[in-house]
C-alpha cells in the first residue's frame, strides 16, 4: 500500500480503489435491483416471484447473468457492425463515470468535483446516444422506432430535469454535490421544494426509460425496441445500464431532495443507500401500476406541462430567495 501511495499519490490510490469499488457496486447493485424488481412485481401481482435458487430466489439473477454471459452473441448480417458493437459499451461507460462524484457519505466520494451535478447530467445524457446507435445500426424497423422515440423523449425531458435541478442549485449556490447535502443538514429540500421533487421523479423516470415512459422498448408495440437485435452479454450491458441509471437518478434525487447521508443513528452511507432504494422502489411501483403513455402524449406532456411547471417553480424559488 505504501508503495502504491508513493508512486501514485494518495489521490491515485483513491481513484483506483474507487474504480474497483464502483465496478463491484454497479454489478452487485444491478443484480440486487433486478431481483428486487422481480420481487416487487411479483408481490404486487399476488405471486411469490423467483423462489428456487437460493433463499427466496436471491441467487436467481446471478444464474441469469451467468446464462447471459454463456450465450452466443448473435450478430445479424445486415447490421452496421462497428456501431452495433460499440453501442453496448457506449451505454455502459458513462454510467460508470457518473459514480465518480456521487457522495455516499461525507468522505465516501471518489472525486468531489466542483461541477458534480453537471457532470452527472452530462454523462447520463450520453446514454441516449448509445440507444440511437443501437437502434440505428440494428437495421430493424422496430429498433429504429425505439431509437427515434428515445431521442425525442430524452430531449423533451432533459429540459424540465435541468430546470428543476436548477431550482435546488439556486438555493445552495453550488454545483458540488457534497455542498448540496451539507446545505440540507437542518431540513431536507423536499420540504421546501415538493413540486420540484415530483417533477424531478417524473423526468427521471422518463430519462431512465421506465414505464410509463418506456417507449423506446415498449414491449407490446415495438417487441423490444432498440435492443431487439441484441443478445447475450450485449443485451446484458443494456440491462445493466438501465438499472444502474435508475440507481444514479435516485442517488441524485437523494442528494438534491432527501438530505443525502443525513440521518440519525445509522452511518451516513447506509442512510444514503436506504433513501436511494426507497426511491427505486417508488420507480418500480410506477412501473407495475401504470399503463404506457402514447408517444405524442409523452412529448406533449413534457412540453405543455412539465416545462411550464418547472419554469414556474424556478421563478418562485428565485423570488422566494430574493425576498427572504
Amino acid at each position: 500500500m505504501d508503495v502504491l501511495t508513493h508512486s501514485l499519490g494518495s489521490e491515485g490510490v483513491r481513484m483506483i480503489v474507487g474504480l474497483i469499488g464502483v465496478i463491484a457496486l454497479v454489478s452487485v447493485n444491478a443484480l440486487f435491483l433486478i431481483w428486487m424488481e422481480r420481487k416487487v412485481a411479483a408481490h404486487m401481482q399476488l405471486r411469490p416471484g423467483p423462489m428456487e435458487v437460493g433463499p427466496h430466489g436471491a441467487i436467481q439473477t446471478v444464474c441469469d447473468a451467468v446464462k447471459l454471459m454463456g450465450k452466443e452473441l448473435i450478430t445479424p448480417e445486415e447490421v452496421d457492425k462497428p456501431i452495433y458493437y460499440l453501442a453496448p459499451i457506449v451505454v455502459f461507460l458513462p454510467v460508470l463515470l457518473t459514480f465518480l462524484v456521487i457522495p455516499f457519505s461525507q468522505t465516501m466520494v471518489i472525486k468531489d468535483l466542483n461541477v458534480g451535478i453537471i457532470l452527472i447530467l452530462a454523462f447520463s445524457s450520453l446514454s441516449v446516444l448509445a440507444i440511437l446507435m443501437a437502434g440505428w445500426s440494428s437495421k430493424n424497423k422496430y429498433s429504429v422506432f425505439g431509437a427515434i422515440r428515445s431521442v425525442a423523449q430524452n430531449i423533451a425531458y432533459e429540459i424540465p430535469l435541468l430546470i428543476t435541478v436548477m431550482s435546488v442549485i439556486l438555493m445552495v449556490g453550488s454545483f458540488k454535490l457534497t455542498d448540496i447535502v451539507v446545505a440540507q443538514s437542518r431540513y431536507w429540500f423536499i420540504l421546501v421544494q415538493p413540486l420540484a421533487f415530483i417533477l424531478y421523479i417524473i423526468c427521471a423516470t422518463a430519462e431512465t426509460n421506465r414505464t410509463p415512459f418506456d417507449l423506446p422498448e415498449a414491449e407490446s408495440e415495438l417487441v423490444a425496441g432498440f435492443h431487439t437485435e441484441y443478445s447475450g452479454m450485449r443485451f446484458a450491458l443494456f440491462f445493466l445500464a438501465e438499472y444502474t441509471n435508475m440507481f444514479i437518478v435516485s442517488a441524485v434525487a437523494t442528494v438534491l431532495f432527501l438530505g443525502g447521508w443525513h440521518g440519525p443513528i445509522l452511518p451516513g452511507a447506509i442512510w444514503f443507500l436506504l433513501k436511494v432504494y426507497a426511491l427505486i422502489f417508488l420507480i418500480m411501483w410506477f412501473r407495475w401500476t401504470f399503463p404506457r403513455v402514447r408517444f405524442d402524449q409523452l412529448v406533449t406532456f413534457a412540453w405543455k406541462i412539465l416545462i411550464p411547471l418547472s419554469f414556474v417553480n424556478l421563478l418562485l424559488t428565485a423570488l422566494a430567495l430574493k425576498i427572504f
Binding site: 412485481a41 404486487m44 401481482q45 399476488l46 405471486r47 414505464t211 410509463p212 418506456d214 415498449a218 414491449e219 407490446s220 407495475w288 401500476t289 401504470f290 399503463p291 404506457r292
Partner: peptide
C-alpha cells in the same frame, strides 16, 4: 397491450 402488467394478473 397498453403496457400495464399488473391488472392482467388480478
Amino acid at each position: 397491450d397498453l403496457g400495464a402488467f399488473t391488472p392482467f394478473l388480478y
